[in-house]
């Protein structure tokens, strides 16, 4: 018993501090992922049933809604293409490098880690789909999290709301830089080290700044909800609401920089 405990302690220390055990973890994950599917089957089945038994009228409504959305998105995409071209020209004039093209991969969330103190989900894409550790994950609203571990056909994604997670951001309006840290609540991020006199107000959009190289530039991260300036404090207390639907999204996009 004592031997097993010592072995466990050593393993935990090694696994917590280094990446030596990653191959073992990867192999085990590949072995257990059918369990995730079984555990998730009520929800997956529920979705299937929903599709099977939807009425004609509802499907038509859905199609109508999606078509209007598509038209709007096409228009925005057209504008965006123009802006990208213009931006690249301006960057070329300034002599800076062109931003790398980004490719995305659609993934479905197949499990949510059961511990409420940790915000992690498992997606159905892994090393086989060239998803690897460190890639950013976004949903239709904004930045969702990052891949922290990938196995053969699944990956674990740490959400931006996890207490151990932080993402470099800047305020879209004033370019103020900060770091948005997770709080353990799906609907709240806090901004760290915002000087008390900085230009930030509720309603400001926070965008990933790309500093640190982990997250791509320009994805919406959250909207500032409250700014508390206590004259006795050096820093303002700023809280933001994540743009991504962290506890509701089923489909997410894995961003792969450099392959369009």
């Amino acid at each position: 018993m004592a031997g097993l405990c010592v072995a466990s302690g050593a393993l935990v220390a090694v696994d917590g501090g280094t990446t030596t055990l990653k191959p073992l973890r990867g192999a085990l994950t590949a072995g257990v992922f059918p369990l995730y599917y079984v555990a998730e089957s009520p929800y997956l089945l529920g979705n299937r049933m929903d599709h099977l038994f939807s009425t004609h009228a509802r499907l038509r409504d859905d199609v109508d809604r999606l078509e209007t959305e598509l038209v709007e998105l096409r228009r925005t995409a057209g504008l965006y293409q123009g802006l990208v071209a213009e931006n690249d020209r301006l960057r070329a004039l300034l002599g800076s490098t062109e931003s790398l093209p980004e490719g995305v991969l659609v993934a479905e969330i197949i499990a949510i880690l059961p511990n409420p103190a940790r915000h992690e989900v498992v997606i159905d894409k892994g090393l086989g789909d060239s998803v690897s550790t460190g890639q950013a994950v976004v949903d239709s609203g904004g930045l969702f999290g990052q891949v922290v571990q990938s196995a053969a056909s699944t990956s674990r994604v740490l959400l931006i709301s996890d207490t151990t997670h932080a993402v470099p951001v800047h305020v879209n309006r004033s370019n103020l830089r900060s770091i948005a840290a997770g709080t353990g609540a799906f609907d709240r991020l806090t901004l760290e080290s915002v000087p008390i006199a900085s230009d930030i107000v509720p309603g400001d959009l926070l965008v990933s700044s790309g500093l640190g190289g982990r997250f791509p530039f320009g994805y919406p991260v959250g909207v500032v909800q409250s700014v508390v300036r206590d004259p006795g404090d050096d820093f303002a207390r700023v809280e933001a609401m994540p743009s991504a639907a962290l506890d509701r999204s089923r489909h997410v996009l894995v961003v792969r920089e450099g392959d369009a």
Partner: peptide, 25 residues
Amino acid sequence: AWLLGFVVDVLVGDPLGLNGACMAG
């Protein structure tokens, strides 16, 4: 029990070896 703990570790995302110790205990 200790070996089965590895499966649990991976399943719930704990550091490897942790659940093995608890389960063997």
